[in-house]
């Protein structure tokens, strides 16, 4: 029987990250395969955001290797600006550009960085706005939008670069509870369309429903990396995970 060996799209080998004397990530190994949704959970300070930010080099790892497909990301020779075009990122605080309209926010990078023709980019931007349900707000400025709306625009902005992987850094943590749903809805749609996603979140419902794998981080280690069924069940004896899940209810 011939089985095609799937190559991971992101490969993390022995990743270490220190802030001064504080070791935030310890010997992290992680493979992410195309089309997978990997959710990273853990208490604050466990290193999950740092891990995500190392993937696109917003943090520079202290040791170890990160590969995107077969290119090593964290070397001097790598053009990090090229790598980042393949890795869309969504932030907790949205970080939309307040001096640009919604449409301009989405178009600025495809036009000025990727050098794609304006008409084509606009077409794509309008499709993405349709997808996140924000078409009507295309000419508004970000600060006039609710947090949930801003985050949906931020997702569209990241998607406009046609990334291979989307990184989500606690995308709903800054939102009022009633606005969380609309953002998760968009993320679910993305997952269903086959986007590779790495999601740091406290939304256990989302992890349970959408994730292919859940990584539980504790004290700088990935202490568990398994299916959501397994992670959210009693079939393991990881006390830290049990108490973490109990505490966040």
């Amino acid at each position: 029987m011939v089985e095609t060996v799937k190559q991971p799209i992101i490969k993390v080998e022995n990743l270490n990250k220190k802030f001064g004397d504080l070791e935030v990530l310890k010997e992290i190994n992680l493979d992410i395969y195309p089309g997978e949704v990997v959710v990273i959970i853990g208490s604050s300070g466990s290193g999950k955001s740092t891990l995500l930010r190392c993937l696109n080099q917003l943090e520079t790892p202290t040791g170890g290797k990160i590969f995107l497909e077969d290119k090593q990301v964290n070397t001097e020779e790598t053009n990090i600006n090229k790598v980042r075009q393949e890795l869309g990122m969504v932030f907790q605080q949205f970080n939309l550009f307040p001096h640009m309209t919604v449409l301009e926010n989405i178009m600025v990078s495809p036009v000025s960085v990727a050098g794609r023709p304006k008409d084509e980019v606009k077409q794509k931007a309008l499709e993405l706005l349709e997808m996140v349900g924000m078409s009507e707000k295309k000419d508004q400025y970000p600060l006039m939008l609710s947090g949930g709306q801003q985050q949906r625009v931020a997702i569209a902005r990241a998607l406009a670069m046609n990334p291979k992987v989307m990184l989500f850094d606690e995308p709903t943590s800054a939102l009022d509870p009633e606005l969380i749903g609309e953002v998760l809805q968009v993320m679910k749609k993305l997952a269903k369309d086959g986007m590779t996603m790495v999601v740091v979140t406290h939304e256990m419902g989302f992890a349970r429903e959408v994730a292919d794998r859940v990584c539980f981080m504790d004290n700088g280690y990935i202490v568990m990396d398994d299916s959501p069924e397994k992670v959210f069940s009693d079939q393991h004896d990881n006390d830290r995970l049990h108490s973490f899940l109990r505490n966040i209810g």
């Binding site: 696109n56 917003l58 600006n81 090229k82 980042r84 075009q85 890795l87 869309g88 990122m89 932030f91 970080n95 939309l96 550009f97 600025v108 990078s109 000025s112 960085v113 990727a114 931020a154 902005r157 990241a158 670069m161």
Partner: peptide
């Protein structure tokens, strides 16, 4: 703002 811009490849 800088991080978001850099994450978009700028």
């Amino acid at each position: 703002q800088m991080e978001a811009a850099r994450s978009l490849g700028m």
